[in-house]
Design a protein around this nucleic acid. Sequence first.
RNA 1: GGUCCCAUCGUCUAAUGGUUAGGACAUCAGGUUUUCAUCCUGAAAAUAGGGGUUCGAUUCCCCUUGGGACUACCA
Length: 476
Amino acid sequence: MNKKIRTRVAPSPTGIIHIGNLRTALYNYLFAQQSGGEFLLRIEDTDRERFVEGATEKVFAILKWAGLVWKNKKPIVQSERLEIYQKYARQLVGEDKAYYCFCTPELLAKMREEQQEKKLPPKYDRRCRELSETEIKQKLNRNLPYVIRLKVPENEVVEFNDLVYGKIKYNSSEIDDQVLIKSDGFPTYHLAVVIDDHEMEITHVMRGEDWLPSTPKHVLLYKAFNWEMPEFIHLPNILGENKKKLSKRTGDVSAESFKEWGYLPEALINYLALLGWNPGTEQEIFSLQELIKSFDIKKIHKAGAIFDIKKLDNINGIYIRKLKVKKLESLCRPYLEKVYDLKKFDDKYIEAVVKLEQERLKKLSDIVENTKLFFVDELDYEAELLVWKKSNKTIIKNNLTIILQKLNEIDDWNKDNLEKEVLDFIVANNLTNGEVLWPLRVALSGQKNSPSPFEIMDVLRKEESIKRIEGALKKL
RNA sequence: GGUCCCAUCGUCUAAUGGUUAGGACAUCAGGUUUUCAUCCUGAAAAUAGGGGUUCGAUUCCCCUUGGGACUACCA
């Protein structure tokens, strides 16, 4: 019956892995997993000029963080396979399907310039195609640098079926005689991708929409080698707010950064899955396992999707709220440690603080700003903030004074009891909530927005709470 | 310039010939015995335009418009 499905993700170690690469990897992973197939990793490092040291390790780290495990423990690395590409390229030359080209980059640049001036499509004029065998031998003997180009047939229809975009047709006359082997002996993407996908027995090539126009080149290569073609699945681009392809220019889009900002991998994956695909139901929250079950290539969109960080924030918030407090605390700690001296506080205190913020957090890094009031010695705020908008200073000062007396009498210092006692006190003394609770909360937090005064007092304990209210009274 | 791709609320999307065009995020309003958040309720918000085909088009076809990708010895 059908062959086992094999997909791959093939990042190039040129720096960061961005959010679009991650989604491509995700879709490849989901598709392979749901059929019991294999998801493989390959490093495409054939551009020596753009190689960034350590980038490969970063790619591994991000994929692991995201929970996308690949099957081949040691991924294929293209730069280690140069002889293989060379061998296949020479095979094509031998079969008259490719040829040596001695044109210099300068010459090609000039050619392109002239063509553009005349508003002609920039294309190689194929002059080296006509070289005689003796000419070629001479040039090779003189050690002239050369590339190997594919002999693209004239006026032939190149056709392939894309599982997302449907039947795609190109006329081969529009395709340039593609360079297969560069003058440094490295293969170009086009050659390497076809050879590797063939050798790795990739059944489904799933990649970004940008590759759609170069797919006919690959089809031509498959035909030249007489190899069976994989299925092609091109994914719509992820767009920035300017509707252009998401890139470094549109802002920080590296997966690494999202990790640092405190987006949970499960949330990011969940959001990314929904960008360009939908389950056809109204379900929006998916675990990786659920995604594997529901994923369906037929439901991949054709149009590009704008990346909306607000929606990501929302989904991330949902995932954060589902976390156990202990877990959330361990995730938040690194962010807090960077800014506050946590040694002064015990674990229980920190956990209580984190618990209070759980429903307020969009991303983990928010914890720092949100919890300032629990970790600083002195609150810094203006006295006016204590005055509730519908009230005046005299009443506030008075209320704060009597509520302070009341609080001093409370010994059973916990949230529920404090709430009960204070609210009862307000009713008994005919006070208004706003004129007591607002200033009390500000006195404790120094902030316009914060958890409720009872929650804060519960965490702060009696001594610190009283101290802060006294401090507020001095301000008034 | 050439080639190719795409087009439903601001955003992500559902509905493929018959729906009051649905949901989610964001926005706004109200409620949840103080703020923010959470939670609940509600509101506003879309089929780019023009032709066909059809009893009937968001849905099928064509044109226009708009947007995008590609056009390297980069991937």
